[in-house]
Computed example of a mutant assay.
Amino acid sequence: MFGLDMGIDLGTASVLVYVRGRGIVLREPSVVAIDQDTGAVQAVGEEARRMIGRTPGNIVAIRPLREGVIADYDVTQKMLDTFIRRVAGRRRLFGPRVVIGIPSGVTSVERRAVVEAAHQAGARQVYLITEPMAAAIGAGLKVHEASGNMVVDIGGGSTDIAVISLGGEVVSEQLRVAGDRMDEAITRYIRRVHNLLIGERTAEDIKIQVGTALPPQEERYVEVRGRDMVTGLPRNIRFGSSEAYEALQEPVLAILESINRVLEQTPPELASDIMEKGIVLTGGGSLLAGLPQLIAERTGIPVHLAEDPVSCVVMGTARYLEALSRLDLAPEKPARYAARH
């Protein structure tokens, strides 16, 4: 194999990898299990996710990306290296050319950390694209036209909101409130109201099964098992969608306020385009029941959920890869090279 083109959605919750000519070849949680005594990687992805909350003392399951940015550089590099090797194989003569989706609000330091981690993981050339731009492209929006498009990408660690026209972000905002904060809100609610401790996997399952952004018209329930804070013993409770709605108010309202701030800063001509075309929701967090309807109610603007919201960013990197052959774009320089020039 003489190298290949690869698009990566490096998300807080999961990593998706697209290979040119093969489609999406990898969807794995952004989790790495590390032996603290030796520093050796024990597991990566779904295998490591199953270990969360179940590891012995010397093994810790780490999520190296937090709130949309790299929190642990070394572990991120090991995770990327594992995924790139898994996809590209060991027979390649040249490293892959890689496009990575990053949040719109990252600092130059965080940007360099992503580039360096990819190069250390074996990438030959690295290109970066902001997640809202990639999401808009992946959702099929005509981003290069002189017309306003608004995309709200709700991931695991961050919500990226952007108004796009003529191939650029006119107004954008990154909010470090998204799917993970929703899980934390459910965990806090159950601890406060039911005196029950639950893990993050359980909270995510509750969000998926009964979570809602609107008051539920029909009550749904899920059995939740955790540890009683008083007795320390295992206990079950029946948790309903009305309680889930109450628990999720804070993160949902924070996302609504961020959308309103972006709309307030949008030039009138582009705002008119958005009123006509609507807001497009992407990312796994946008799958929360009732969220599109709530945003439409509060803004007065039509809201459309992308066809495959979870895959929009990685499909945007895929289309960006296709454009690289037509555009003369310079790849990002590794930090060591940049320091010498």
Rank of each mutant, 00 (worst) to 15 (best):
P331I: 00
V17G: 05
A254R: 08
V313C: 01
I154Q: 06
L256M: 14
I164W: 01
I59N: 03
M79L: 13
I295V: 13
L4A: 13
L233I: 10
L321F: 03
L329Q: 08
A244N: 11
V252E: 09
R86P: 15
V193W: 10
A71C: 07
V314T: 03
A323H: 11
A40L: 14
V15F: 11
E204N: 10
L233D: 10
L196G: 11
S30H: 04
V314G: 01
E223F: 12
E218P: 14
Q36N: 15
G23Q: 00
R54L: 13
D37H: 09
V170H: 00
S158C: 09
I237A: 15
R22G: 12
G53V: 06
P215F: 11
G285Q: 04
K78I: 10
P302T: 02
R235Q: 13
I129H: 00
D37S: 14
R181L: 06
E173C: 08
V87K: 01
V17N: 08
G122E: 05
Q209H: 09
R91A: 07
I198Q: 05
R261V: 09
V170E: 00
N260M: 15
E204L: 07
D180M: 04
R66K: 12
D74V: 08
A146Y: 14
G45P: 12
E264V: 04
I164L: 01
Q120T: 06
G39A: 15
G105V: 13
R235P: 13
I186W: 03
E204K: 04
S165A: 10
